[in-house]
């Protein structure tokens, strides 16, 4: 995170659009809401499955950075054990 605490009193990523990559190769881009025993809760989410799409994940990310998050799920919960990495989308370079 650069600069300010975004939402004081919440998880550091609350309200921040994140890129989450799973151990299984799925990419989720959405607004981080919270984290609990079920996993990470994201809102207004775009998901990319590199195994089921002709679009390479790099192109999916590049397109999202330029044109924004094309929401296909209002909410997604990703189990902690499946999270390979997560961070603000703004820190991802095309």
């Amino acid at each position: 995170m650069t600069g300010h605490v975004f939402h004081p009193g919440h998880h550091a990523l609350h309200g921040v659009t994140v890129l989450l990559e799973t151990t299984g190769g799925l990419i989720y881009i959405g607004r981080f809401d919270s984290e609990d025993e079920a996993g990470a809760h994201l809102l207004d989410v775009a998901m990319h499955d590199s195994h089921g799409s002709d679009l390479p994940k790099e192109d999916f990310i590049r397109r999202t950075l330029k044109f924004g998050v094309r929401v296909d799920q209002k909410r997604a919960v990703i189990p902690r054990t499946e999270i390979a990495r997560i961070g603000p989308l703004s820190e991802v370079s095309a």
Partner: peptide, 30 residues
Amino acid sequence: EYQPSSPSIALFRDGEVVHFVHRHQIEGQS
């Protein structure tokens, strides 16, 4: 062609979008 988010900022020149700032480029930034 840009997905809706708010806040966001569009800069037009002669009717064409030449620059766009999405919400994700604002979150957490000074």
